[in-house]
Design a binder for these strands. Sequence first.
DNA 1: TCGGGGCATTTTGTATACAAAATACGAAAC
DNA 2: GTTTCGTATTTTGTATACAAAATGCCCCGA
Lengths: 225, 225
Amino acid sequence: MSRAAYQVRPPITRTPLRSEVRRLLLGEIVRGDLAPSEGINEAELSTRLGVSRTPLREAMLGLTQEGFLTATPGRGFSVRALRRSDAEEIYPILWTLEGAALRASWPLPPSRLRQLDQANRRLEAARADASVALARDREWHALLLAGCPNRMLLSMIENLKDHAARYEEAFMRNSGQVITSVTQHREIQAAIRRGDLERALGLLEKNWRVSLDFLGPWLEATTSP
Amino acid sequence: MSRAAYQVRPPITRTPLRSEVRRLLLGEIVRGDLAPSEGINEAELSTRLGVSRTPLREAMLGLTQEGFLTATPGRGFSVRALRRSDAEEIYPILWTLEGAALRASWPLPPSRLRQLDQANRRLEAARADASVALARDREWHALLLAGCPNRMLLSMIENLKDHAARYEEAFMRNSGQVITSVTQHREIQAAIRRGDLERALGLLEKNWRVSLDFLGPWLEATTSP
DNA sequence: TCGGGGCATTTTGTATACAAAATACGAAAC
DNA sequence: GTTTCGTATTTTGTATACAAAATGCCCCGA
């Protein structure tokens, strides 16, 4: 048989344990199930997850590199605390990169505008449940950048959005408030429809800045720096 | 003794093996000593480095996450090939983020301008040796962003510069050409001195774009996509 | 009552062990 | 001569073992 037929795609997907563990842990961190309280006990967590310490540590080292955990030599890992100073670093990077990605996606095809509008309606419908709303909001943003050819840029943005999601999830859970972006999304869509990239970029930045403006005072009040 | 006295700083720095291994490997990758040819043999490399496979794998997983290595499940690690398509993703992110960092450092203190000028003279003096020139160039850029308060942004930029350094190191070694930025740095300094941020940002982007314009055709000629 | 020092225990960081999958190799079939 | 199948070997992914460091605890002394 010709070699090319095999090169198409590895038929079965072998998923390393570390990836699964990573997914689980990141979910727990973002949802706040794994709190920044005390240090993580590796033996305990590994038995809870049903794996050995090796893939667990691999996953945690990865999450440390991405800033979700902190590692102190000799003292192990702990969930990174939510800090106003960190949020004030994350969000500007996020709007800068998302702006760059939108620029790289320009001009958006008309079909994309229809998809965005649909996604925004789904977001509007989900306003009641904060977690669902967050997921829908994220879908809208993903759609916005769907045409961006820069894969590395997109993956960096996804990572930053995981951070943002952690902050917003905690804020909504803790304060009961829901940050809603439906109107802002509409404005952004309108700017895109008019072909006004610069205006869309400004509104996009503003959209993130609103979230940060909610977070700042709340973080100031509840946590350390 | 009061607890506060200890909290100042852990007096001795405990460095995990994985960090040391990471440093060594990254150096070898950037300098091209570890080529993208074939897969990496863990047992072999671990004995060469004098550590066990555990910290070696930890280091390699980290470098994989950063994009310096690729990991294929069941088949281990290999140095990521130099690709034009990758360079065309990396550089735009780099100039976008460095621009954002410069904006966040604005306005630069007059002392910074003097330091930049000195650094640029050191770069000019080192034009002969490509590797030294690259290091000096990097020092100039680091100085440019020295006032940026966004630590996460700076660390992302450093990571991207490691990637850029790998590409430029390979280009210079392979083609014999040296990409020189002395004149462009002077122009950027002049714009800063005039207080013209937007002009400085444009020149900064152009500075990186020149490197990419050297790399593109060379990568097209020598490697795969 | 509070603080300090020494010992027991826990926990981490690294090394090693082991099973399963991937690769290499060779013989047999065509 | 080429290809295909089966087996031996290597290599990876994960589990476990072990040493050193960190933590907790208890007793003692002030």
